[in-house]
Design a protein around this nucleic acid. Structure first.
Length: 292
DNA sequence: AGACTAACCTGAAAGC
DNA sequence: TGCTTTCAGGTTAGTC
């Protein structure tokens, strides 16, 4: 599931396939709530445009177009961006050898019923595809100067988290600290995996009321969060369930998890069995001994 | 305003 | 084996 690290890894890999290329054709599926901008309008706005740069804010990707418009992309739960065609297959070969058969390559890099957006380019190079089986992802074009409540609502990007800021945000919130971490208006980019991992690293129990954390704990938590996120980016993100990098390879951070999805397994630090509780309709994983 | 819940969607895994 | 149920979770809209 794409959280900040997976979105950042996607940004880095997909930027070379997007930036500086003129879009010649846009193919979409039928209108659905995946399209915040209706498909017909999306096609009209994107055709002939080129991407100046690709930025990330929290879990959003923002493509700045030469028209001054912005293309917002959110991967939701199962969204994937990847390049189709020869170049991406070549990229695949360089990172994974001959691991995939031509059939598997077609499966992974070809459009299917879940490919909701496909961009073709005037240079004739590889298309860029946005696939999302569950349609929790989002696509939207913002006109030049158009405000976006979605973006404006976001808090500070989680890579920039500080203890002071976390402390200030926690002060009047009577929710579990885990819930606060998932609140995108507080910290943009944190999802279930990294919230659990950061809490473990900071040795803070996820059910602790946010406003009860002291300054030192907030500082520890902010540091832990940044450390976990950076490390995940460096290792290519977490390939749990659906996520693969745009080039089709798995990330490696799932191998470094301490708690997420490890219910009943022993804590890597103290050996105690990892416990699972549901907080705000989300499963949360923690070590009852390390995290109090 | 803050807290809580339901809904959106579909594939994988578990249960029977 | 095959059908049914449960689960996964990012985000928003709606309710209290």
């Amino acid at each position: 599931m794409p959280e900040l690290p997976e979105v950042e890894v996607t940004r880095r890999q997909i930027a070379p396939l997007l930036v500086g290329r003129r879009i010649s054709d846009v193919v979409t599926t039928a209108p659905s709530y995946f399209f915040l901008t209706p498909p017909a309008r999306l096609r009209a706005r994107l055709r002939g445009r080129s991407v100046r740069r690709l930025e990330r804010l929290g879990k959003y990707l923002i493509a700045r177009l030469d028209s001054g418009e912005r293309l917002l992309l959110h991967l939701g739960m199962t969204g994937q961006l990847f390049g189709a065609g020869a170049a991406s297959v070549r990229l695949l070969a360089s990172t994974r050898g001959a691991a995939l058969t031509p059939e598997r390559q077609r499966d992974r890099f070809g459009p299917d019923a879940h490919t909701h957006l496909r961009l073709a380019f005037a240079d004739g190079g590889p298309d860029v595809l946005f696939r999302d089986a569950r349609k929790f992802g989002k696509v939207q074009v913002l006109a030049e100067g158009e405000r976006s409540p979605r973006l404006e609502r976001l808090g500070v990007d989680a890579l920039e988290a500080t203890g002071e800021q976390l402390c200030a945000a926690s002060r009047r919130r009577r929710v579990p600290i885990k819930t606060l971490l998932l609140d995108q208006s507080v910290l943009a980019g944190v999802g279930n995996i990294y919230a659990d991992e950061a809490l473990h690293l900071a040795r803070i129990q996820p059910l602790r009321p946010a406003h009860r954390l002291d300054r030192a704990e907030c500082r520890r938590l902010a540091r832990a969060l940044v450390k976990v996120l950076r490390r995940s980016i460096a290792t290519g993100g977490s390939s749990i369930s659906d996520y693969v990098r745009p080039d089709g390879t798995d990330g490696a951070y799932q191998d470094e998890r301490h708690v997420y999805g490890r219910t009943g397994e022993s804590c890597r630090r103290c050996g105690t069995r990892i416990r699972r509780v549901v907080i705000g309709q989300r499963s949360s994983h923690y070590c009852p001994r390390c995290q109090r």
